[in-house]
Nucleic acid binder design. Structure first.
Lengths: 125, 125
DNA sequence: TAAATATTTCGACATTCGTTGAAATATGGA
DNA sequence: TCCATATTTCAACGAATGTCGAAATATTTA
């Protein structure tokens, strides 16, 4: 991913109110939540929330689609994983301190259990 | 990790000049780089760079130690991995879209090859 | 001690950012 | 069409942020 996009996503998530919105939407799943419900859930004014949604949308982290008179916003999980992968690449070049704990976390059974363990290429031949 | 610390790290990295500094330091390894060399390398004014270093330090992403008349700054890779793990936990609860690509990236041989593959707990018993 | 090098701190400035109230737009139902 | 609901847009304001020049601090060397 491009550096600019990474910066956009980092700063989009770097405000508590927006991080709250994003986390709520990730947990809500692909169906998303209507803007009004998000505002009610998080206790934000509708117009303030709209500004946050704009920032998150522009960063590609969420996507809004109209549903009747509401607009449902859904997280774009791959946008976060792209960002994470981008950050992880900083540690490449034989420096595993960053990736190792991430790998461990990703491998933990309580976080994202891989439904279908693909054929795993052996680590060192 | 705490939400406030995560926000601090996100916003510390959300400025191109600072992300450049951090990436440079991660690649430089534990020995770190003197502030002046960083400034020269990235073409930043010394006092401006000092402000960036302060922000990154306050966020726990880098650590400066005096070495003669220079101060060497070294990345704290675990600070980044803590942040990444924090972000990844958003996807927990049976929603693997975020973690799966991260897991794949972490497992790629060209990024952080696990030197000693630990005993791997089977994925599903 | 004095001078040179390395880095930080301070004060000021312009810019950006987040929030708010009011008005505007869009949709669905009577 | 008219009204109610849902959300966004606009303009303005205050707060926070990044950058700059100048001065201050810390360290080494002569």
């Amino acid at each position: 991913m491009e550096s600019k996009a990474a910066i956009d996503r980092l700063s989009a998530l770097a405000l508590p109110a927006r991080l709250d919105v994003f986390r709520l939407l990730v947990r809500a799943g692909p169906h998303g939540i209507a803007a009004g419900e998000i505002a009610a859930e998080l206790g934000q004014a509708p117009n303030t929330l709209s500004a946050q949604l704009n920032v998150l949308s522009a960063a590609g982290l969420i996507l809004g689609t109209r549903d009747g008179r509401s607009i449902r916003y859904a997280a774009q999980p791959q946008a976060l994983s792209e960002l994470i992968v981008y950050l992880m690449e900083d540690c490449c070049g034989g420096r595993p301190e960053v990736c190792a704990p991430v790998q461990a976390a990703a491998a933990r059974a309580d976080c994202c259990p891989p439904a279908k363990p693909k054929a795993r290429r052996p680590v060192r031949a």
